[in-house]
């Protein structure tokens, strides 16, 4: 019964919190309204996530978020330095293919998003079987090091979270 009412508890909880954040107040009325959304929306959208991923390690998610936030700050400063202080002729832009061990679409999406938000890299496209991501790097002298860092810093953590 409970499983049919809340097929996706995490989504329901997110929707309730999101509704409260949107109205920016914490009253009983809005908690009830948010709960209605939290129950109704997962029911309606259930056909669109037939095999949703399981989050294996919730604490790792928090760790991952903090690491990514920190890296975004670092990335901003690095890219700003490259833009301001490097002559265009000295910027060595490279394509870097990064082979993926991740299988689930959600994990790959998060990895691609992370790559785009962090130091000097934008994820441009996937191999058509989803086993490799093509990364565009603004400036690097050592493409292999960038690839290894992405795999060690982000992919290995996502693997622990999703697989």
């Amino acid at each position: 019964m409970l499983k049919r009412l809340v097929p996706h508890p995490l989504l329901s909880l997110t929707l309730i919190l999101f509704w409260l954040a949107l109205v920016n107040t914490l009253t009983l009325g809005h908690v009830i309204l948010g709960t209605l959304f939290g129950i109704g929306i997962p029911m309606i959208t259930a056909p669109y996530w037939p095999d949703r991923p399981k989050i294996r390690a919730p604490l790792k998610v928090a760790e991952y978020c903090l690491i990514v936030l920190w890296d975004i700050v670092v990335a901003n400063v690095q890219v700003a330095m490259i833009i301001l202080f490097r002559r265009n002729e000295d910027i060595r832009t490279q394509w870097i293919p990064v082979p993926l061990d991740l299988k689930s679409a959600e994990a790959i999406t998060i990895l691609a998003g992370t790559i785009t938000m962090t130091p000097g890299t934008v994820s441009a496209t996937l191999a058509s079987d989803g086993s490799c991501v093509l990364v565009h790097c603004l400036h690097t002298d050592d493409p292999d090091a960038v690839r290894d860092e992405i795999k060690a810093r982000y992919e290995s953590r996502l693997k622990e979270i999703f697989q």
């Binding site: 394509w95 870097i96 293919p97 082979p99 496209t125 996937l126 191999a127 058509s128 079987d129 086993s131 490799c132 093509l134």
Partner: peptide
Amino acid sequence: DLPKSGTDYGWSVFSDPP
């Protein structure tokens, strides 16, 4: 213009999925 994808399939912009 792009490096090889290292798998049997090319980049998804240019080649079809399996």
